[in-house]
């Protein structure tokens, strides 16, 4: 059973870190923060309507709120001239607060508690089992969703590599050759929302941010080209989740929390060591 939890953690960290990489490259890391908080009311409402977890309904609800969040951030910025980061802050705190109120009001029905919202329950998520499609394997319910999410992320990344690259690096140039920045912006935010939602139950709202931001930021420190950065991102995601997992078991503490902390330590180590490997030029 432990091994399923570990595999699950690795898969989630892979999809989160890859989806987060493009937010980090666009300097929109805090948008990960916003989205991961904002999906909560969507999850709860969909749960109250459909009455079960891990359904397409729940996914749809959360995705809707992910997009609502992105929309509101832009709306407050454009129409009411709230500053960019304040707009993010106002939107996600409000949506999250709304979600928490729903959770505490319908605690019995929802079977999510306030704390689980924060650090997930990756160990419980392994309890319910089902057949993995087309095979004989018995795997945890949530595992199936996570695997398909990872596949989707990888697919978007492979097919959209060049579009994501050019619109992240130089949006002005991209649109000058007729590439729609809006499309790729919403695609990358959309993928990030989807990943957040799928990982939310397992690792909670705030640790999703760690998975989305830290591995790719770490990789960025020591990468010269985008493909290099992406594979290093996956490496750091894997080492972080494996080390975090065993450390958490050993200490008997929150698995998701430990993974996040270990990712942070990894980042700090790379940043300290980097000085001796690579010289940045003077501009």
């Amino acid at each position: 059973m432990n091994i399923w939890v570990l595999i699950h953690a690795i898969i989630i960290s892979l999809s989160c870190s890859l989806a987060g990489a493009f937010l980090v490259l666009r300097h929109r890391a805090m948008l990960a923060d916003a989205i991961s908080h904002a999906v909560l009311p969507g999850l709860v409402i969909a749960f109250l309507i459909t009455g079960s977890r891990n359904t397409p309904g729940m996914l749809a609800g959360a995705i809707a709120f992910g997009f609502l969040c992105i929309f509101l951030v832009e709306f407050f910025k454009r129409k009411v001239k709230v500053t960019d980061d304040a707009s993010i802050g106002i939107t996600f705190t409000s949506l999250f607060a709304f979600g928490i109120i729903l959770v505490s009001k319908y605690a019995e029905q929802v079977d999510l508690d306030q704390e689980c919202v924060l650090h997930g329950e990756i160990t419980f998520s392994a309890l319910q089992r089902m057949h993995f499609p087309f095979t004989q394997w018995m795997v945890p319910n949530t595992f199936v969703t996570s695997v398909f999410t990872l596949l989707a992320v990888v697919l978007v990344l492979l097919a959209g590599y060049r579009g994501l690259f050019i619109t992240s690096f130089h949006p002005e140039y991209a649109s000058s050759i007729g590439i729609s920045i809006g499309f790729w912006h919403y695609l990358s935010s959309g993928v990030a929302s989807m990943v957040t939602i799928v990982s939310f139950e397992a690792v909670g709202a705030i640790l999703v941010i760690a998975l989305m931001v830290i591995p790719s930021a770490t990789a960025w420190l020591i990468s010269r080209r985008l493909p290099e950065m992406l594979w290093k991102t996956t490496m750091f995601a894997i080492t972080g989740s494996v080390a975090g997992f065993y450390l958490a078991i050993w200490l008997n503490v929150s698995i998701a929390g430990t993974i996040a902390a270990v990712l942070g330590v990894q980042f700090a180590m790379v940043l300290i060591l980097k000085g001796s490997f690579r010289h940045r030029s003077i501009h």
């Binding site: 060049r162 690096f169 050759i177 985008l226």
Partner: peptide
């Protein structure tokens, strides 16, 4: 941004 000179110049060959 993680890109080298060649990556950027090759962008000149991209189109929608």
């Amino acid at each position: 941004f993680p890109a080298d000179v060649m990556d950027v110049v090759l962008m000149g060959r991209y189109n929608p």
